[in-house]
């Protein structure tokens, strides 16, 4: 991946939690290099820049003016995505946007149109497509072992509620709601595995941690597909005990079932936190490395981004419709994909 001789110069906007995962992956890559970071907290940007041995800026404008920055990863809160995406693309930089692409279907299409008009790579951080288990399930489906997929159940439940009432994620005006913030990961998986866009969504949610929550920290989304296939996508941040973590991925086809069970990694631990299933060392790091390698390939050689932009837009369509379903208590039809 070194056709250009030099690594792709990457800038990161926003150096919060998810940016750290991208930085860790970049440290292991030869095809890309972190050259600059920026944050509204200029001191934090300077601190990270010092540790990462790159330039640090207190504004997006300053980062985009840096000629060493060829591509940008946007790691800021959801409500900033559309405007920042358009700004990055207008500056002529390739863009890897953390999910969601935007908070509205219209916003997602606006960013995608800008990238297409400028001939720039646009990828969206649907990182769950790059996990070991997600790729393995897709391989089983592609091999035809379970026949035609007609049901997906994805469960990603945990008790790690976001820290404090001031957290932007708890504000639906800023995050778009749980469907858009985390739910978008699993509806994308479901649509990918079923192999077609969803045509409807019906969602049921709860305020599990506190009645005062404005988002649904426990959320179940049922997707319908034109073929008659369906999916149930469940995500929670409100489990008790808080240490509870439960992951299940199941695809049922016309000829069989493939399932990634809670204890699939084979590591069960009894600790003060109770019985928990542990991840395998390094599995999380591989996710971001694969995601970034795909993005670099798209930026350098025009390879198709993963997931395709149309799928990232569709994921916003589903998630936005899910929030509408929660508000209105009915099934919401989803229009044709972009």
């Amino acid at each position: 991946m070194m056709e250009h001789g030099t690594p792709l110069g990457i800038g990161i906007v926003g150096v919060g939690g998810i940016a750290l995962s991208h930085m860790a992956a970049l440290r292991t890559m030869t095809s890309a290099q972190l050259v600059a970071v920026c944050d509204v907290d200029a001191a934090r940007a300077a601190e990270v820049a010092h540790a990462e041995r790159c330039a640090g800026y207190g504004s997006v404008e300053a980062l985009l003016a840096d000629d060493a920055v060829e591509a940008v990863i946007v790691c800021t809160p959801n409500m900033t995505h559309e405007a920042l995406g358009l700004q990055v693309l207008a500056a002529g930089k390739h863009l890897l946007m953390e999910k969601p692409l935007a908070m509205t279907p219209e916003g997602a299409r606006a960013v995608a149109d800008e990238a297409a008009a400028r001939g720039l790579a646009l990828a969206v951080g649907h990182s769950h497509r790059f996990t070991d288990q997600s790729l393995a399930i897709r391989e089983v489906i592609d091999a035809g072992e379970i026949g035609t997929p007609r049901f997906v159940r994805v469960v990603m439940n945990g008790g790690w509620i976001w820290p404090g009432w001031q957290a932007w994620v708890l504000n639906p005006e800023l995050s778009g709601g749980h469907s858009l913030h985390n739910g978008i990961h699993i509806v994308d998986l479901a649509s990918w595995w079923i192999g077609e866009p969803a045509t409807s969504v019906f969602s049921v949610g709860q305020h599990a941690t506190s009645e005062a929550l404005e988002i649904h920290d426990y959320l179940v989304m049922e997707l319908g597909f034109a073929s008659g296939a369906s999916a149930v996508c469940e995500i929670s941040r409100g489990e008790r005990p808080r240490s509870a973590g439960y992951l299940e991925l199941t695809v049922v086809g016309t000829a069989g079932v493939v399932s990634r069970t809670w204890d699939a990694e084979g590591v069960l631990a009894w600790t003060d936190a109770g019985l928990t299933a542990w991840d395998i060392e390094g599995s999380a790091a591989r996710v971001f490395l694969r995601e970034l390698e795909a993005f670099v390939a798209a930026a350098r050689s025009g390879a198709e981004v993963i997931p395709p932009v149309s799928a990232a837009i569709h994921a916003v369509d589903i998630a936005a419709a899910s929030e509408a379903s929660l508000r209105e208590g009915r099934t919401i039809a989803i229009g044709a994909p972009a």
Binding site: R150, F151, V220, E222, A229, S230, A231, V232, T331
Partner: peptide, 18 residues
């Protein structure tokens, strides 16, 4: 209160409800 989906051949049915 639920929404159901079925494949055309009836081989699979899913529902979600409150």
């Amino acid at each position: 209160d639920l929404q159901a989906h079925s494949t055309a051949d009836g081989g699979a049915t899913t529902f979600l409800g409150r």
